[in-house]
């Protein structure tokens, strides 16, 4: 089910504990502005702390835990990364 390494997917596709590199972000200026100031920029490493399949998720970015709604997380494109 999980897509292989190296292919782009959305942040909501990451399972709890998976790592990824951020590729790009979609969405309006307001959303992009808020997310970039929290550390979401292309190339940054993201770790999925909690993704229960529904409800908001928790992502670790630059040593900070950020809770994101699924709608917002879907705007962030990532590439899986196994370290």
């Amino acid at each position: 089910m999980a897509k292989p390494n190296g292919m782009d997917c959305s942040l909501i596709d990451l399972q709890t504990g998976e790592h990824a590199l951020m590729v790009d972000m979609r969405g309006g200026k307001g959303l992009v502005g808020r997310l970039t100031s929290l550390g979401f920029t292309p190339g940054v490493e993201l770790t999925m702390i909690q993704n229960m399949g529904r409800g908001p998720l928790i992502v670790l970015v630059r040593d900070t835990r950020i809770a994101l709604g699924r709608g917002e997380a879907a705007q962030i494109l990532v590439k899986r990364n196994d370290r």
Binding site: G30, I58, L68, G71, E72
Partner: peptide, 10 residues
């Protein structure tokens, strides 16, 4: 309408 949910978990 719904607004974005973005919150730091300190």
């Amino acid at each position: 309408e719904r607004s974005a949910f973005i919150m730091e978990m300190p």
